[in-house]
Design a protein around this nucleic acid. Structure first.
Lengths: 193, 193
DNA sequence: CTAGGGTGTTACCGGTCTGTAACTATCCTG
DNA sequence: CAGGATAGTTACAGACCGGTAACACCCTAG
């Protein structure tokens, strides 16, 4: 059958994309390499020609996932060029959208929960990528002219992270529905100082 | 060898205690029943005489873990009888302690991340237990005389949940160190209304 | 046309997983 | 002391896991 996708996209990219999706939906330890390759329309040997191990594949998936997240931030800049406060509000709206649409949390946070070995190669990558996310939010808050930018950014970060977990434990009708109110309240409260 | 613990405590309780500890440290899918029984000083057959399956053991561990959490709340009541506001502040302090001392998150949240099958027996239990936790925090906020008690309780819940995840992704030196400042700021801000 | 790199196929290795069977040893109670 | 419940031991079944070997194929570059 002429798949179209299977034909044109290179196996490596298909594997990476499929693995991201399956890890996200079913968890890392809940998906075997066989299942990934089959869903990607290829086979195990090809996977191991492009990734030296499952752990390496996991790391690449996390990097790809973080890159997609970073791309969204670029959209904010494109939609509200120079207006950092508007970008911050856009971030809040976007987060609320994600909470309602996706019942699973952040890939990096989920990976951190699943991969408990202290020296797992993914752990340092998660720390690095999460640090970059935080730095970006801090910079946005600061450039929006907010005093105590670090504290606001960290508060919003924890709120966000908590909401994504809450969706998984209590469903999308739980406390996470109040995220926008909480975040907007915090922002205006910090701006008032 | 005369173990003392192995001798006096019944196998079922040893298994439950050990499983809780190991699930917490290494994740549910990261621990096999063999490892649990060996660490508990017993064997697999005995485990399966007391628990019909690993899933059932998981559920019982979650209930036990939640019960321990509930016991802490009773301590607050004992330490500050009738003074709900003091109990709320005690909760904040206790949470901060946990964040600094334990690098792993909430057992229920972690389980929700790991057990992705929508009809896994643990999922409904997690929802139930998390709902009870939330209800208790809401009641505490309301009884402390705070208007918008639900909103404050949900905000604190998400902050707490987020902080426990953050410890796993960024370490205990990350944003979670600001938890007390955030929580206290929120409480006084809500009380001022 | 040909050589070679990327890909697919099949089979396999050794290990681990949950769960069970059959039997034995122990201990408490009546 | 007798008997029954509880616990321990060994072995095993059947499935799945990550990872590899060997070989056939096809497509494109030279």
């Amino acid at each position: 059958m002429a798949d179209g996708i299977t034909d044109r996209v290179r196996p490596r990219d298909r594997i990476l994309e499929t693995a991201q999706d399956m890890f996200h939906k079913h968890g890392i330890k809940g998906v075997g390499v066989d299942a990934i390759t089959e869903a990607a329309g290829t086979n195990k040997m090809t996977l191991y020609r492009h990734f030296e191990s499952k752990d390496e594949l996991i790391v690449q998936c996390l990097r790809a996932s973080a890159a997609k997240g970073a791309a969204i931030w670029d959209e904010f800049e494109a939609e509200h060029p120079g207006d950092k406060l508007a970008q911050l509000h856009a971030w809040v709206r976007k987060v609320a959208e994600m909470l309602a649409a996706d019942g699973r949390g952040c890939d990096m946070a989920n990976a951190a929960v699943e991969l408990t070995e202290p020296d797992h190669p993914a752990r340092s990558v998660i720390k690095e990528l999460k640090g970059a996310q935080r730095d970006r939010l801090v910079a946005l808050c600061r450039d929006a002219g907010i005093g105590q930018a670090e504290l606001l950014a960290d508060t919003l970060s924890l709120l966000f992270e908590g909401a994504r977990v809450s969706v998984q434990t209590m469903g999308c009708q739980g406390p996470s529905t109040q995220f926008v109110r909480m975040a907007e309240g915090l922002i205006s409260s910090f701006r008032a100082r």
